[in-house]
Amino acid sequence: MSAVLQYTVQGLAAGSFYALAALGLAVIFGVLGVVNFAHGAFYMLGAVAAAVLLDTLGLSLWGALIVVPLLMLVFGMLVERLLVQWLLPLDPLYNLLLTFGLTLLLVDLVKRRYGVSGLPYERPSALSGRVEVGGVGLPVYQLFVIGVALLVCLGVWLLMTRTRVGMIVRAATERPELAGALGINVGRWVTPVFGFGVALAGLAGVLAAPFRAITAEMGSDFIIILFAVVVIGGLGSIVGAVVGGFLVGLVEAFGQAYAPTFAQVLIFVLMAVVVLARPAGLFGREEATA
C-alpha cells in the first residue's frame, strides 16, 4: 500500500513534466498545425537556463520559475518570427524538419558551452526532504511539482475556456479559415501562441532541473515520450495533453517499479492500445486529425 502511494506520487511528478510540455505542444499544433519537434530541446533549455542562472546570478528556483518561462516565451516568439513562420504556408512536414534541425543545433550548442556531463542544481531547502502522509514518507519536491503542474494546467484551462483569447484560440484551432472570415485576425495569434507553448516546455524544464540530470541530451528521450503522450491524449486536445501526460507518468513509474525492463515499452503498448480503440486519441475529435 505504501509502495503504491509512493509510485503514484512519483508517477504524477514525472507526469507533471509531460503534462506541462504536452500542453505547449498541443496549443502549438492546434493553432499553427506545426508538430514542434524542438519541444524537447526547449524543455532542456529551460532546465539549463535555471542551472546557469542559479550558478551565475544566484537566481533561486522560485525566481527561475517566473524568469525562465518569460525568457522562453521571448525566445519562442523569436523562433516563430525568424524561422517557423516562413514555412507555415508549406506542407507541415517542412516545419517538422525545421524544428528537428533546430533541436540538433540547440543540443550541440549547449554541449559545446556546458559539456556533456550534467550541470549541478541544488533545490531550495524548503523543498527537500520528505513529509509523512498516512505513514508514508513522500518527497516534498515531488508533491511541489505536482502542485505547480496542476495549478498551471488549471490556469491554462481557465484561460482557454473562460476568456476571449481562449475562445479565439479554440475557434482558430478548429477552423482557421472560418475564424478569419468571421473577422478574427488569426495570424496575429500565431506568434504569441508559439511563444506560450515554448514557455510551457521551459517551465517543465525548470521544474525538472532539481529532479533530473541536466544535460544537453535530456530532451531527446523526453520528446519521444511527449509524442506518445499527445497521441494518447489526442493531437491538439488540451485536456488530452494533460490527462495523457499524467497517465504516461504513472505507467512509467509503475513500470519501472514492477517491470523495469519493460517500463518504456509499456508506454508504447498503451499508445498502441489507445490508437486501436480510438484512432484520434482519448480526447481527440475524429475530424481534427483528418
Binding site: 478548429e174 472560418l178 473577422g183
Partner: peptide
C-alpha cells in the same frame, strides 16, 4: 484585403455547411 478585414468591412458570410464551431 484578407478575409478578416473583409468581415470587418461589413461582409457577413454564412457558409454552405453553416460553419458552426463544435468547440464553442
Amino acid at each position: 484585403l484578407p478575409a478578416h478585414r473583409r468581415a470587418r468591412a461589413g461582409l457577413g458570410w454564412v457558409q454552405d455547411d453553416r460553419g458552426i464551431f463544435a468547440n464553442l
